[in-house]
Design a protein around this nucleic acid. Structure first.
Lengths: 339, 339
DNA sequence: GTGAAAGCGCTAACAC
DNA sequence: GTGTTAGCGCTTTCAC
């Protein structure tokens, strides 16, 4: 900037003003300076600017990882959510800082705010750490969480209506004749816990007793799911439908069921969760509960920004919708078998 | 920091030194200061630190978007690559800035470097803009590209061996008896262009003439692919195999073929590209050319860092491997039909 | 309309 | 071992 000032024969303040488009500076000098900057491929140093201005337009997006499984970032749903966030943030001119932190040290996330690296934080998934998040909220860290709305929650969440989603999926399975619906997913995770409540609701409403044995708290890991299916078959625990906590899980389950020689949807009906892009192209095409991914990114960003604008923190429940496809259709009048 | 200095009864420099763990400062004062900082939940302002130090440990990851289709970030392969990059960067203590830019304005990417927001850039996909990238390299912007190695390339790329991959896939299809292999993908994209060359190589080696009509330059868009399959059928352009430029495409094609009443792999064999997580669980399980995603993130980061360390820019070709599954298996001795 | 000077929060000579 | 001081690149009062 000093260079430009020298070359243009003006002071740095003028250059600063010119580059900021201030009307205080002569239109002609302004153009001359702009031209000079362009030819020098100069662009303003954002770090210094932020320091001086005392603000920042970077939003940190945090994806916790489970230190046990040390799993890579791979679930298509979360990945898509990141994509959606990237789009939403870019649209509003914000930078997105993507970080992974140990799920047991979620409080580290606050560091990104305290060190001034980010103006606010989007947390993807709340894991088991409701308490840590509440603590962060008390500290005044601006953040939003993708996840479930929990009692005594001091922070804002954006998420689908998991209880309604669980209810919809399960009611649909029961309505189409299923009597023993396997629930696959770890109910310790708040979102999944709510889906399980919906599962229970639907059973109660339909007057079908729910067998506790049918609730299988498997983690999101592929091998565990296949293992679980095998083990159920060996122990002769019968089931005629599966409600899986994610489409990825549902697809893995279907693959395992097929290996076990079962037919879909005649022998077992399956409903997943998320409605990832591939769900419609799977075979059989996968019934699922749609989470509106594109809206999700927008809603998260909007919530965070309104919070930063000083508005009251407010959680958002996004619409949740059952998408019925072949994997749970009673009459498999669908495409012919192509195996 | 000034506050801490006051409270500790020392000068800011001492605090700075103490927090940096300098041995120059008395161990006891150092501990006292650290304690104070902790209780005040103070952490160093990274922006100011970077400004002073004149460096920066943020790496920008750029995913171009096609302004025509304005597509959202959704291909599982690219999303996984982002996940892999996030993991690789976190592991080395770097921050990851995720940005989308207009594919026609790739030069904007350089701005992230020039404005000091990032120490270097990872570009995911080179699109049609080899020239713009070369220009960036001449400017001295440190960056790596995920993509194909091109002639007269002044920048570093990391990518799979696309030509070998195309050859492997096509040779496999031809060897299993296919004679009319549809190629689906836009060969204008460098990576896909190379896969098409591999496709041609394999035909030449096998002594099977390649029909130019069978090369279908469809974009990555789902609807376009379904449309294409319909149109081919209507025009009675026959084919007995498909080599798709991505698994996502392959899955869409399979879904469209099934709707058309065709059987896999008896009527048509299909091979995809990427080996995304779901490929193995698809039905029929999808034959594909594996791109080593986990290695990819690591390799990109390593390449960028070594470039920043002043080493000579060097492109990396990652191993590429054919994974044969049911979608292209001659004897469909696989799982029973479950539709 | 433009310049001089102070200061954002930090670090690193250089003194003592 | 610790304090003083200058300065990273920018913006913005306050003069003129």
């Amino acid at each position: 900037m000093a260079d430009i000032a020298r070359l243009a024969g003006v002071s740095v303040s003028t250059v600063s003003r010119a580059l900021a488009g201030s009307t205080l500076v002569n239109a002609e000098t302004r153009e001359r300076i702009a031209e000079l900057a362009r030819s020098l491929k100069y662009s303003i140093n954002v770090g210094a600017q932020n320091l001086r201005l005392g603000h920042n337009n970077t939003v940190a997006v945090i994806v916790p990882y489970d230190p046990q499984t040390r799993q890579h970032l791979s679930d298509p749903f979360f990945l898509s959510l990141i994509g959606s966030l990237a789009d939403a943030l870019t649209e509003r001119g914000h930078d997105m800082l993507l970080t992974r932190v140990d799920a047991d040290r979620l409080d580290q996330a606050a560091g990104l705010y305290h060190t001034g690296r980010a103006m606010g934080i989007v947390l993807v998934g709340q894991w088991h750490h409701h308490d840590q998040l509440n603590a962060m909220a008390v500290q005044g860290v601006p953040f939003v969480v993708w996840g479930a709305q929990l009692p005594q929650q001091l922070y804002a969440t954006v998420g689908g209506d998991n209880r309604a989603g669980g209810r919809l999926a399960t009611a649909h399975l029961l309505a189409s004749g299923a009597r023993r619906v396997l629930f696959m997913g770890d109910p310790e995770l708040p979102e999944i816990g709510l889906r399980l409540q919906g599962y229970a609701d639907a059973h109660a409403q339909a007057g079908v007793p729910a067998d506790a044995q049918l609730v299988r708290p498997v983690p999101f890991v592929t091998e565990a799911i296949q293992q679980e299916v095998r083990s159920l078959r060996e122990r002769h625990i019968g089931f005629d439908a599966v409600f899986a906590a994610s489409d990825l899980m549902a697809m893995t389950v279907i693959s395992a069921l097929r290996q076990a020689g079962l037919h879909l949807p005649e022998d077992v009906r399956v409903v997943g969760y998320d409605d990832i892009a591939l769900a419609a192209h799977f075979h059989p095409s996968l019934s699922t509960v749609r989470q509106p991914i594109d809206t999700a990114g927008q809603a998260l960003v909007r919530s965070l920004l309104s919070q930063l604008a000083g508005e009251r923190v407010q959680s958002i429940l996004l619409d949740t919708e059952l998408v019925v496809r072949d994997s749970s259709r009673a009459a498999a009048a669908s495409a012919p078998c192509a195996a």
